[in-house]
Simulated assay, not measured.
Amino acid sequence: MYLGITPSVTCNNLSRTEFSLILDKNLLVESMEELPAGPSFLCYCHLFCGIIRGAVEMVPLAADVTFLQDRLKGDHVTEIGVTFLEKLDEKKYRRKK
């Protein structure tokens, strides 16, 4: 929402602990013409994974956020997988008065 991107959400897990965010439009991808030659493990869109992981921790939940598909690497869409791991201890995240 803050980045101007509206993803599609898909959930194929019966326990609803995993889902995917599919980005049809990605501003980071549109500003890149092609990946530079060199290490193929670079993923310029990992910024999104950190944003999502940080937002989920504010709830407080722990999540594993990974890239499943990347348009910069030749896929048709950008897909981010989110797996909820556990509920975090709320006492660590409360402000002390």
Score class of each variant (00 low, 15 high):
residue 18 E to H: 10
residue 60 P to F: 00
residue 16 R to M: 04
residue 85 L to A: 05
residue 56 V to S: 10
residue 1 M to T: 09
residue 43 C to Y: 10
residue 63 A to Q: 00
residue 33 E to Y: 06
residue 16 R to Y: 14
residue 15 S to Q: 11
residue 44 Y to T: 10
residue 72 L to N: 06
residue 12 N to C: 04
residue 14 L to R: 09
residue 43 C to N: 15
residue 74 G to F: 07
residue 97 K to D: 12
residue 47 L to W: 04
residue 78 T to H: 13
residue 35 L to M: 15
residue 39 P to Y: 01
residue 13 N to M: 03
residue 22 I to Q: 10
residue 32 M to W: 08
residue 39 P to T: 02
residue 63 A to G: 13
residue 63 A to E: 11
residue 33 E to H: 08
residue 4 G to T: 07
residue 79 E to T: 00
residue 48 F to E: 01
residue 37 A to M: 11
residue 72 L to R: 06
residue 52 I to N: 04
residue 22 I to C: 07
residue 66 T to S: 14
residue 39 P to I: 02
residue 3 L to T: 09
residue 66 T to A: 12
residue 51 I to R: 14
residue 65 V to Y: 07
residue 89 D to K: 01
residue 76 H to Y: 09
residue 57 E to Q: 08
residue 86 E to K: 06
residue 27 L to H: 14
residue 95 R to N: 09
residue 78 T to Q: 09
residue 6 T to K: 10
residue 95 R to Y: 02
residue 8 S to F: 12
residue 12 N to H: 09
residue 31 S to M: 12
residue 51 I to F: 12
residue 13 N to C: 15
residue 32 M to H: 06
residue 79 E to A: 11
residue 11 C to R: 08
residue 39 P to V: 00
residue 53 R to W: 02
residue 90 E to P: 01
residue 48 F to I: 04
residue 48 F to V: 03
residue 48 F to Y: 15
residue 49 C to F: 04
residue 26 N to D: 14
residue 6 T to A: 04
residue 92 K to L: 07
residue 8 S to H: 15
residue 71 R to T: 07
residue 9 V to P: 00
residue 57 E to S: 13
residue 7 P to C: 08
residue 48 F to L: 12
residue 24 D to L: 07
residue 22 I to F: 06
residue 84 F to T: 00
residue 37 A to Y: 12
residue 5 I to V: 10
residue 7 P to T: 01
residue 59 V to S: 14
residue 9 V to R: 09
residue 41 F to M: 07
residue 59 V to W: 10
residue 27 L to E: 08
residue 95 R to L: 12
residue 8 S to P: 01
residue 42 L to M: 13
residue 19 F to I: 00
residue 38 G to V: 09
residue 34 E to P: 00
residue 69 Q to L: 09
residue 54 G to Y: 06
